[in-house]
Each structure stands twice: as structure tokens, then as C-alpha cells.
Write a protein that binds this DNA or RNA. Sequence first.
DNA 1: GTCTATAATTAGATAGAC
DNA 2: GTCTATCTAATTATAGAC
Lengths: 221, 221
Amino acid sequence: MGRKADAPHNVRTRRARTDIREALLKSALVEFGANGFDGASTRAIARRVEAHQPQINYHFESKEALWAASVDYLFGLLGEALDGALPADPAQASTSHLAAGFADGIRRFVRFAAEHPELNQIMVHEATAASNRLTWITEAHIRPGFDAIGLAWRTLRDAGWVAPIDSDILYYLLVGAASQPYVTAAEVRLLAGRDPRDPEWIDSHAEALVAILLPGLSRNE
Amino acid sequence: MGRKADAPHNVRTRRARTDIREALLKSALVEFGANGFDGASTRAIARRVEAHQPQINYHFESKEALWAASVDYLFGLLGEALDGALPADPAQASTSHLAAGFADGIRRFVRFAAEHPELNQIMVHEATAASNRLTWITEAHIRPGFDAIGLAWRTLRDAGWVAPIDSDILYYLLVGAASQPYVTAAEVRLLAGRDPRDPEWIDSHAEALVAILLPGLSRNE
DNA sequence: GTCTATAATTAGATAGAC
DNA sequence: GTCTATCTAATTATAGAC
């Protein structure tokens, strides 16, 4: 229609939006998740929410600052989604209560991975090589969950509830198995002819993960 | 030292190499795996093997043709690594033989994922959105393995050897769980202080995956 | 705070000497 | 078949009018 590819409006209209910052954060997550830091363009991020490319440099110090702010926002959502799943002190909880909490955490994490595939997409983009961005995201956001999962798993393992698997390895088994179908959702649609965001898929997926990691749950309770 | 950033040699020397095509393929895999199709630059691919950027357009029709050739090369290696793991006709094999073959396939796939993290890295880069590249790689290279794994799993499942998990879901559980620590190896080093390419890690990882997916193997045999 | 115009850099591809 | 030089297009960031 003669509209310039980069222009978000047909007519010169000035709009004042109070939510432009959060709109840019959400748009940035989708673009950074799909294309990585270098692959995502600030033009595409702005266009997705009908903003102009220079607005990014107005609302954020740089593309890198936008990336960090969007990652903070994403891990804030993750924290809300997982809040209270694992007991603060696994040593004090009963083992069966801890196992039930672990299973609950798995189900919530699978659901979050389905709703926010950007999380693991961004980690895959960043974690192939050492970098300042990787160090920051790992220490600021990943390590707390890694420690909590490791502590809970070792408690369950030493009580004989689960298979004798190293907790570092368990962490990556769990993250990879929980995220893969949502990270590669377009492939799932082509290959299996099914949409992994379907609630039925998500439920079956979460229960499958609980069944193989915590087989004692269905037997002992 | 006054060397131009893009120039691979300090001195003007002409070199004739017979293996330049394969060297470019291997270099392309590393760059495409780490940065995705758009993120990888042909200059970086060439520089890594001390070649010049225009040599890519001489030896390959385009960046896209180089990408396809490098993916063909990678799946050729995967085919060799997995050759003979699963019986051609699972219905004819004994169930315990099939289970042993499945476990063997898991171990070989984990080892391959550790040696060639580019495979799953490239899938994550490509499979976030529908595209011609995704359709081609899925139909040409992914579907045969997907079908073989699904058939073997359903046979084992219907014989009661494994947990009652949908074969589509099982495929993505397996791929994600087998690949994650190698795809995000730099994160593992920061977070766990261990190198996942260590043979000890790879062995423990493969055995953990066999233990949770085929618990009947250690019990029944 | 929004928007246009543009500066500085880098990308893939090609022309042509050797 | 290798290599230099260069073209066109796209990138992030900034200047300055409104």
C-alpha cells in the first residue's frame, strides 16, 4: 500500500503511550529468543509494537541494556511461576513432601517453558561461548534455581527416592527435557503434526517427566 | 601488528588446498551452530580456516548453499554414528534385544551430541519459526530418525517395558535431555565448574538417561 | 516523548587481476 | 583457484525538529 517497510504508521500521528517500555520489553523477548542478540534487530523489536527504532535508544541506554532489562523481566515471571514449589529447607521437610514439591515444580516449569520458550531459546543463544552476557545471566538469574534444584535432588537421592544421578547432570536433563518441544515448536508442528502449546500436550509432557524422574511417587503414595 | 582484521595472512601468499571445501564445511558448522544462519558471517567462516571471504562464493553457490551442504555433512556423520543401533524391523526382534538396542542408541546419541553440539544448536536456531530451511532439514534429515525412534518406543511401550509415554513426547524428551549440557557447554562450565565434554560426564549422562527411560533394563536382564 | 534524517559500520555477493 | 577492491543493502546509534 505504498507504506514504507520500516514505518509503523500510515499517517504522521504522535502517540503518547505510558506502557511503551513494557511493550518494548515483551517484543524484545520474542525477537531475542527467536534470533539471538546479534540476530535480533532493534527495528524489528520496535515495529512489532508499532514504535520507531530510535525509541529504543530513548527508553533504554543501548540494545544491550534492552536485552538485560528484558531478561530481568522474564526471570521475574519465572520467579512468580515457581514461587513456593520447593520448600526453603529441604532437610526439614518430610521426604514424601519434598518429592511432591519437586513434582509440582516440574509441572510448573514445563508450563512456563511452554508459555515462555524465549527463556531456553535465549540461554541456547548465549551459552555457546563465554561472554559478559552469559556470566551475568548465569550468576544473577540461573544459579539460585540451579542450587535449589540440586539441593532438593540430592536430598531425595540420598533418601533412595530417585535414581542415583549426579545433581549437575540431573539439572541439564530436566531443563533440556522440559524445554525442547517448545523451543523447537515449529519443528514439532512439521514433524508430529501437533501443536506443543496444546494444553493436552503440555499436561502429558509434564506427567511423563514426573513419571521418569520420580517413579517412586506413584508407587509409594 | 598492522594486520587488517579481515586478512588471513600477513604476507601475500597464494595457497592451493585440495581440502578447502571440507575445511569450509566444518568451519561453517561451528559458526552456524554458535550464531545461527543470519548471525554467522561468511567472513568469520572463512577466517577460521585462513581463507578469504569470496572463496565461499567460489566454492558454494551462496551462503544458503553453504549452510545446506554443512548440514548434509553433519547428518552424514550422525548416520555413521548411529548405524545399526536400532533393528530394521522392531516387530521381529525380541523385546529385550530391542531394549538393549534402544539403550545402545541413547549412548551413541549422547556421545554424538557431546562431540557435535552444532546439531541441536542449529535445530534450535532454525526451529523457532517456519521457514524453507526448517522444512528442508526436517523432511530430509530429521524424519527418518523420528520415525525409527517412535516405532521402537511404541513396541517397547506396548510390551510393558517402558513407561506409558506418547512417542512424540518421548522423542523431544530424549533429544532435549541428551543435548542440553553440550549445547550450553559454556554455561555448564560457569555454573557447575565442570566440562561436559569430559568423558566421565558423558558416560554418567548417558547412563542416567538409560536408567530413567529404560529402568526395566537393569531389573529384567 | 515522538519522529525524520543520517552517520558509521558491517553484511553477502561480484568483478577482475593474477 | 586465490586474492583485492568494491557495490548494495542493512545494522545501531545519534542529531535535532516538533
